[in-house]
Structures are given as C-alpha cells and as structure tokens.
Amino acid sequence: MDEARPAVDRTEPSPSTGPLPRIGEHVGILAHGTVELRRAFGPVLGEETVDRIVEESAAGLSPASADPAHRESIAVRFAHDRLAAMADARGVARSGVPHVLFVCVQNAGRSQLAAALLAERAGDTVRVSSAGSHPAGRIHRNVQPVLTAHGADPARTFPKPITEEVLASADYVITMGCGDDCPVRPGQDARDWPVGDPAEVDWDRLQEIVADIEVRVDALWREISGA
C-alpha cells in the first residue's frame, strides 16, 4: 500500500464534490468552472495551483467534440478530479475511501469499462478513476453504449492522460495492456489484468471482454469490501 500519509487538518475546509456545469449550458464553462474550483480547492491547495491545474487540464485533453461547451465542460471535470486527488494525496482533504485507478493505453475501452463496473457495484464506498498512457480522442463507439448501460455518466466518460496527482492518491492501480508505459509508485498495490482490447471488435467478442472484466472487478470488489 501507499506510504503513510499525513493526518488531515480538520480545521481546513473540505473541497466540494457538488455538481459541475453540464455539457451544453453555455460557452464560458471553463471560466465559470475555474471560479467554482477556486472556491472549493483554493483554501487547501492555493488558487495558483487551481489555475495551473485547470490550464493544464484544458491543454492536455484531446478534443472529444467540435462543440466548445463540451470541451470546456470535460476540462473542468478533469481538473476537478485532479484537484481532488491532489488534496487527497497531500492529506489536506482525505476522501476516507479507497481509490482504485484503472489504466490502459487509450482510456477508451478497457479501463473505462472496469471503472464503470466497479463504480456500479461500489457506489460512494470506493473512489474510481481511469486514465490512458496514450489517450484517444473519444471513447470507442462500441463501448459507449455498454458504459451507459452500466450507469456511467456520458459527460464523465472521456479519455484522459495519467497525471501524477491521480497516480499518487491511488491505493490500487490496475493496468490493462499498457506495459511499461503504465507508471506505478513504490509501495502501491499494482496489478495487471491481461484482458482483450474492445477496439473494433464485433458484438460477441465485446461481450466476452466485458464478462472477463466483470469477473475481475467482482473479485476486486469482494477483496476491497471484505465480503
């Protein structure tokens, strides 16, 4: 497991995990989202850090849509997740639940499916993230309906790169086909799942891959929950 983390300073305000702006509300979501993220994370991380993470997040994502509102919305969501992970890793606003990070190459299929399946089972009792060593521009078209069927919010299922703060806060790192490109920190519980790649497979093969991931997720969930 991780190295020991500092105790939480209970006098610090905890970052908000409330809803962020939804896709299509208006262009200018990035500016509005930055204000909300400063309010939530500025007291514990500093507003300069918030602004830097937002800027990096907006620059680091492949455009998933020609719609500016969509691009800004996913940048704000990505920045929120990174800031929450940073606060957790630094011990200034611990979530109090295990954090599982799934990593594959494109973050467009396997890792997204695993994250959706674990989130469906665990709810708020586990913090679930996913990332890619070389993220694609969008989720595989054949995978998106499966994600939606398992309760994944389409606004949150976008490919994103691995970032240091998300990696640092993870208690479990599950790699899925990215080999040496999947970084792991010393002392982390890291495991590799050799599952098939759902990109451009037919429906029957996709169902086999989903079933394989589901069996592995169920075993992991039983271990984490102590069931």
Rank of each mutant, 00 (worst) to 15 (best):
D2S: 14
E3F: 05
E3S: 11
A4E: 08
R5L: 14
R5N: 00
A7V: 09
D9P: 03
T11G: 01
T17F: 08
P19A: 15
P21Q: 14
H26G: 09
H32Q: 15
G33W: 12
A40K: 11
E48L: 10
D51I: 09
E55K: 04
G60A: 06
L61H: 02
S62A: 14
S65P: 00
S65A: 02
A66Q: 01
R71G: 00
F78W: 12
H80K: 08
D81P: 00
A84K: 13
M86Y: 04
V92R: 10
A93F: 03
R94H: 04
S95G: 14
G96S: 05
V97A: 05
V97N: 00
R110Q: 10
L117C: 10
G123Y: 06
S129L: 14
H134E: 07
R138Q: 13
R141C: 02
H150Y: 10
G151V: 09
P154T: 08
F158P: 12
P159V: 07
I162V: 15
I162K: 13
A168R: 15
A168I: 11
A168P: 01
I174K: 13
M176S: 11
C178A: 15
V184S: 12
V184E: 06
W193V: 04
P194S: 01
V195C: 04
V215K: 13
V217K: 07
A219F: 01
I224H: 04
A227Q: 14
